[in-house]
Amino acid sequence: MIRYIIYRIAGLIGVLFLVTIITFSLMHAVPGGPFDEEKMPLSAEAKANILRKYGLDRPLYEQYGRYMWNALQFDFGIPFQSPGETVTDLIARTWPISMQLGGMGLAVAFSFGILLGILSAIRQNTWMDYGTTMLATLGITVPSFAISILFIVIFATIWRILPTGGWGGPETWIMPVIVYALGPMAIIARYTRSSVLENLRMDYVRTARAKGLKERSVLFIHVLKNSLIPLLTIMGPMLPGVMTGSLFVEGIFRIPGLGQFFVTSIFERDYPMIMALTLLVAVLIGIVYLITDILYALVDPRVRYTRGSK
């Protein structure tokens, strides 16, 4: 197992290296630059001053080399869209907020998602099942920005029991967390349902029932454990996205999190920030996949890893 982990980490570093190259090339292939004029064209000299100030007058390979060299020493540069601080400062300031939002959202999504999923599976084709399906569908279907606006109008404008936005005490968390949780909750509920249903038909369940085990213990001991495997597969990729914030939810509820920067960085051609965010998410996803695969092996004894899962 240890050899496997080391092997995977080495692979991850290679992947990260490839990712930086692809991102760097792609972002420089996009037309426009970070200091293009907004209104009137600047003189060529004025523009050259700006480019020189940020080292953008150098050839691309040199910019890339310099970036990587600094990044290895944990210097990720200065964000063009917020030059008063470093990229590290900016992420340190905004990310914890997104993590808090994401963590609360995930907790809500998982508890309710799994509950709904199990309920609709054991009551398959009843009103409970259909109701859950409808609810889950609504959760994914109606765009989060639509639900957000609906919530704000109802709870803040009409009833005035919650603030329209901001990020302070628990009263400011309620609406964004619920909106945030709806999508993942719906997905989790659906996967739980289909996975539980599948497992209920497995031979081992029949065997367990035949042995005279109570339905409840069959469900919770055998079925649930085995149903968690596909859940792990979907939870993995979900985690980094959820933990790095949502553009829409954070924007609409005025939450000073990291989510907005995934879009503004591209619109502003904020090269250091694009690189940093890609790296951040890449590292996160890499780690999450690694952990998922390890857990996978632990939870499901049918899957065993020796080197490269042969």
Binding site: I152, A156, G165, L247, F248, E250, R254
Partner: peptide, 20 residues
């Protein structure tokens, strides 16, 4: 000044009507 981000601006009229 309550700050917001221009890429996905918050709905402003509800905040106005809520007296914020």
């Amino acid at each position: 000044y309550r700050m917001f981000n221009l890429t996905t601006p918050p709905p402003r009229l509800p905040a106005y009507e809520a007296g914020e």
